[in-house]
Design a protein around this nucleic acid. Structure first.
Length: 344
DNA sequence: TCTGGGGTCCTATAGCCT
DNA sequence: TCTGAGGCTATAGGACCC
């Protein structure tokens, strides 16, 4: 039987900000966008004090401001959080060498081979993360990744939750299906139309019904998720498949020159990033989001991979020609895919 | 009224080939 | 030559994640 730990940092961005600005202690704190609650942007992290006002991740900053005007709003400082994130991952690697990086504030650890009870291992993980960073995290330990992630979410902040093979099914049955990582608002609504709201009810749906409603691949995922089945191994090495840059205008624009200039800038930034990371890509794409969130993409595959701003810009402009700009534009993005490790 | 930016993966469709 | 099945690739869109 495997033993997988999922580690989730508590209100990570807010915790890092509070650590370097102790005067923020105890205040509702909202991290997101440029830190201007009147500008376009969404909440990346809300401190627990801010959550009491109903503020949560992905909420527009303007809405958060309306809910709690006295909250402190700060811009996202990705570099600072990445630096702390590296310390967290380094601390975790002292516990077990089998680590999957699952984002800036979470990770999976395979702790199967370690001696001691799950409780002891969980406490040791939390102790080492705190010793390295001064921050708290929530930990879930279970027989697989999916259950470990569900477990880490059951008690937070600063929680430790163990799910065993025997009690897992019983303890997740009453949870809403939304607690399963991979079930989002669309699948949740679809299941609700079938009268399914909890993981236990999902487990009651016949496999054939799932296939009819969701298609084979999705049905298999739902079938296994409902039963706590997950044989996926940890992914300990990862290479990026694409790089992209996008930006939302503070006000929607119909001005083609603004759109072209922005695409050119994004292409230049993207090229710099590719060169810094040592990648070249063959697939160049653009994304245009119109007023009303109507989003379109166009892409083109080059004969040879590139990391040159000029080549990316030209291909992006060619893609742009294929989209009629007949409405105000909210967002533009540039993407480079089919990446390969460049040789200079 | 609103709804970021960086990604991954899956699906549908169309064209081409055998 | 026509028709059709199935595989493969390129493209566009969408769901989901942090």
């Amino acid at each position: 039987m495997r033993r997988i730990a999922h580690i989730d940092m508590d209100a990570f961005f807010a915790a890092v900000e509070r650590q370097r600005r102790p005067e923020l202690a105890g205040k509702p704190l909202v991290i997101g966008g440029r830190g201007d609650p009147q500008a376009r942007g969404v909440v990346s992290t809300a401190s627990y004090e801010a959550r009491r006002y109903g503020i949560h991740s992905a909420m527009p900053l303007r809405t958060a401001f309306r809910l709690c005007p006295e909250a402190v709003f700060l811009p996202v400082d990705h570099r600072a959080y990445s630096a702390v994130s590296q310390k967290v991952k380094a601390a975790l690697l002292t516990v077990s060498p089998v680590l999957e990086d699952a984002g800036i504030d979470e990770a999976y650890l395979d702790v199967t081979a370690l001696p001691g009870s799950a409780e002891e291992i969980g406490r040791e993980i939390k102790r080492r993360v705190h010793a390295a960073t001064g921050l708290t995290c929530s930990v879930g330990i279970a027989p697989n990744k999916r259950l470990a992630k569900i477990a880490s979410d059951l008690q937070k902040p600063d929680g430790l939750t163990i799910l065993t093979e025997e009690d897992a099914a019983g303890r997740i049955a009453a949870l809403p299906v939304r607690k399963v990582p991979g079930i989002g608002p669309v699948t949740e609504a679809h299941l609700a139309r079938l009268g399914v709201r909890t993981i236990g009810e999902l487990a009651g749906l016949p496999a054939a019904r799932l296939v009819a409603e969701f298609g084979a691949a999705r049905a298999e995922f739902l079938y296994e998720a409902a039963r706590g089945i997950d044989e996926r191994e940890l992914v300990t090495h990862w290479e990026p498949k694409e790089h992209s840059r996008e930006t939302t205008f503070q006000q929607d624009t119909r001005d083609v020159q603004t759109i072209r200039r922005t695409i050119a800038e994004l292409a230049r930034e993207l090229a710099g990033e590719l060169r810094a990371d040592g990648y070249r890509g063959r697939r160049i794409g653009i994304k245009i989001r119109f007023t009303g969130f109507d989003t379109h993409t166009r892409q083109h595959t080059l004969a040879a991979p590139t990391d040159a701003a000029e080549v990316i810009r030209r291909a992006a402009f060619a893609c742009l020609q294929r989209l009629p700009l007949d409405r105000p534009v909210r967002l533009v993005g540039v993407r480079v895919g089919e990446l390969e490790k460049g040789d200079g």
